[in-house]
Design a protein around this nucleic acid. Structure first.
Lengths: 115, 115
DNA sequence: CAATTATATAATCAATTGTTTATATAAAGA
DNA sequence: TCTTTATATAAACAATTGATTATATAATTG
């Protein structure tokens, strides 16, 4: 049994505003499945690299995502430790699975893998 | 057992942007408990009447709220028939109950009642 | 170490947003 | 019908936002 931790409206509206952008909402939905690096997001969302970087920067500033550098790449993932994670999880559950976009990326050989 | 109807990101981000404003998020949280007229929202949120009217207009345009005229007053309430209502309900559940603000209004004798 | 690849950052700019002030509409009451 | 009360709307404006272009940083590879 989980008790929901209430958020204040001030903080919540900031998070909601961040998700109130088509690109960022897509990024967050995508990252719910898998971590992705910037170039993968660029390919999937068909947007410029600086634009994607600016969006993930905002998500990072709000602690919605975390980053992890691996070689040349910087991988972004959902910050499940965040106070707003339950809200994020709840919101993204209303949107369609984005997995097929990552699968398409693999098919095109554009998936970044570092082992 | 309820099956969640998925929303598309395009539509969802518009709704999220509307809730990404402190005033509108507060209004929606308040209306989850009770319908309110504009002058009650003005009093509770301590904002100008035109400002509140502009905000509820946007919420109405997105079909998040409905209006009902009663005499001089126009009461706004959550549109529970909307396709995005489950999302609204889910999001608002993360924020504190706003009931005490309506109770305070009653104590001050500022609650609008038409019978 | 020079070239390449991935990402970040900064400057610029058009578009959007939220508030205020002023005015219009519409119902109620004297 | 004139006044009051409640609400809507329009115009103006400052602030914020998101995209683009150009440049910087940082790791990799030859």
């Amino acid at each position: 049994m989980t008790t929901i931790n209430k958020l204040d409206v001030e903080h919540g509206s900031i998070v909601m505003k961040l998700l109130g952008d088509k690109t960022r909402l897509s990024i967050v939905c995508l990252l719910m499945h898998d971590e992705c690096c910037v170039c993968e997001l660029v390919e999937i969302l068909q947007m410029s690299q600086p634009s994607i970087s600016q969006h993930v920067k905002k998500l990072k500033a709000a602690e919605i995502v975390k980053e992890r550098r691996q070689g040349q790449w910087i991988f972004y993932r959902i910050n499940t430790d965040s106070q707003v994670y339950p809200l994020i999880e709840s919101i993204t559950s209303f949107f369609p699975e984005q997995q097929e976009k990552i699968i398409d990326l693999e098919k095109k050989g554009l998936r970044v893998c570092c082992d």
